[in-house]
Amino acid sequence: HNLTITQGKLFFHYNPKLCLSEIHKMEEVSGTKGRQERNDIALKTNGDQASCENELLKFSYIRTSFDKILLRWEPYWPPDFRDLLGFMLFYKEAPYQNVTEFDGQDACGSNSWTVVDIDPPLRSNDPKSQNHPGWLMRGLKPWTQYAIFVKTLVTFSDERRTYGAKSDIIYVQTDATNPSVPLDPISVSNSSSQIILKWKPPSDPNGNITHYLVFWERQAEDSELFELDYCLKGLKLPSRTWSPPFESEDSQKHNQSEYEDSAGECCSCPKTDSQILKELEESSFRKTFEDYLHNVVFVPRKTSSGTGAEDPRPSRKRRSLGDVGNVTVAVPTVAAFPNTSSTSVPTSPEEHRPFEKVVNKESLVISGLRHFTGYRIELQACNQDTPEERCSVAAYVSARTMPEAKADDIVGPVTHEIFENNVVHLMWQEPKEPNGLIVLYEVSYRRYGDEELHLCVSRKHFALERGCRLRGLSPGNYSVRIRATSLAGNGSWTEPTYFYVTDYLDVPSNIA
């Protein structure tokens, strides 16, 4: 807008934040220059609390790290170098490059900038070799853009010569660093050979998330399962459950009422301010606690030095998902009996873990797994792929695949051998790939016309006998059925096997 004052003059007093240069501009645009008398524009009460600059400061050096910015700028000295009290560095987070010096300023003089007072450097006698002032900004957020400017702080001049310097606002972004852990990993099994893994992005990506790394490792069953005799009275049979499938998407929606109208769909109840505040506090606490764990609990591995020492970490090797089922080394339970199943799973520490690289999504279907087997899954978020990966501390989750139908069934015939004193040795093959492992066998036998009897055969007993022995049988026709019990439950009964026990007292003698 054009402003013209045809008559009258300007009068400025007691404006401590208004620089004289701005008042002189007002004289020019209003056409009143030359009308004012000496005392109409006070030299001592206008701009006496402001830094009124008329020179431009330029930054000469900028260096960044993930949490620091090192700045240096060209030296500046007023005509009387004693008038320079120091520099004021202003900075704040700036997602967009549209910041002005006066953003967030209120009537009390406060604003949204963080201000650092910096002492002037030592003055050199040689004007050509003056030290460049600077400042190291610490405690910054990774991968965050900051708006920065600097200006001088000078003393009051009796001659009211307006001098000083100020830089333009520059924008500097800190470097990326390792992201925080992925949030809320959930693993479920939808079949006997697959596990579905879902997660949420890290709360602090500290860069642009480029991919996720998912490692999985087959877990050995508890050692007590191999040692305890679950045929003993009072000892509860062990059981394991597989990871249940995901709930429906509708039930997972946030901010939804727990109660549904019987007449149909209901609208979600909005969260109160107290609920939102509580969630923010919980989120802040979780982030602080995660940072504490990362800094205190997890110790970084030592990389190899120039002395030739090897990095103890196993090298990563990509495998196809079809090879995942046989990740671990199978060892027989008892070496003397080769027909026992290889369900003991000690994992070799030198073995390469299978892994998958996930790009542009937060889910993965891990296939080719062994049925009813526990897996430990390790999830890392990465925001750099080359020249070397920059990934987060791992988040861990466990899951067990679903049982395989008929995996616990005894394959092959049940054979028998009759000894003296009416002892019958029953023999059968253990299931080759049971659900988890076989903890015991149930032997059901009966003599024709009598009630059915049951015998429990422990895992250890089966390994020693290759089956079991029935003792003290009365003469007669017998039928026997056997079924295995694994961590997933009972298998199917075998087809009945028949044998006849004679009275050993009636056996004919070869003595003449």
Rank of each mutant, 00 (worst) to 15 (best):
S257E: 15
E362K: 07
S348L: 12
G308E: 08
Y500R: 08
I511F: 15
R240G: 14
P244W: 09
E442M: 04
H352N: 04
H425L: 09
L437Q: 12
F337E: 10
G325D: 15
L379N: 01
L487K: 05
N339W: 11
G472A: 13
E260M: 13
T272W: 05
E452H: 04
A395G: 14
S348E: 11
T347P: 09
L440C: 14
P431L: 02
N422A: 15
S458N: 06
D222Y: 12
D409V: 09
F298R: 13
G207I: 03
H461S: 10
F337M: 15
L225M: 11
Q380M: 07
D385H: 11
D408Y: 01
G489C: 02
D250P: 12
V443L: 08
R286P: 06
N435Q: 01
S283P: 08
S274E: 06
K361Y: 13
Y375G: 01
V443C: 02
M427I: 11
P238H: 04
A309P: 08
C267V: 12
V480P: 01
Q429Y: 09
D506A: 10
F285L: 11
K460S: 12
P354H: 12
H461G: 10
S320Y: 14
S257T: 06
R469E: 11
C468G: 02
S262Q: 07
Q256N: 05
K432C: 09
Y441N: 01
D311L: 14
E442N: 06
T307N: 11
I366R: 02
V214A: 06
V297R: 12
Q219W: 14
R286F: 12
F462Q: 08
V214M: 04
W242V: 14
Q219K: 08
A407W: 09
N422K: 13
R316A: 12
S344M: 08
S367V: 11
I377D: 00
N422F: 04
D506M: 09
V334W: 13
G374D: 10
E265D: 14
S274N: 09
S479I: 05
K361F: 12
T386I: 15
G476M: 00
A263E: 10
P332D: 09
F372V: 01
G491H: 02
G234Q: 09
K361T: 10
D204Q: 03
T307I: 02
E442W: 10
P338H: 08
I377G: 04
D311Y: 15
E378W: 09
G368L: 05
M427E: 14
T347S: 12
T307K: 13
Y375I: 05
A263S: 12
A263N: 15
E433S: 13
L464T: 11
D261R: 15
Y478K: 00
V423I: 07
K271V: 05
P431A: 07
W428L: 00
D311V: 00
T373C: 02
V324C: 03
D503G: 06
H425E: 13
P349S: 12
S251P: 15
K361V: 06
S363R: 04
E290D: 11
L225G: 02
D229M: 10
C391K: 02
S458G: 05
N360E: 13
P387N: 03
S251A: 06
D204P: 03
A309Q: 11
K317M: 07
I366F: 13
K317N: 08
V358M: 03
K271R: 12
T373Q: 15
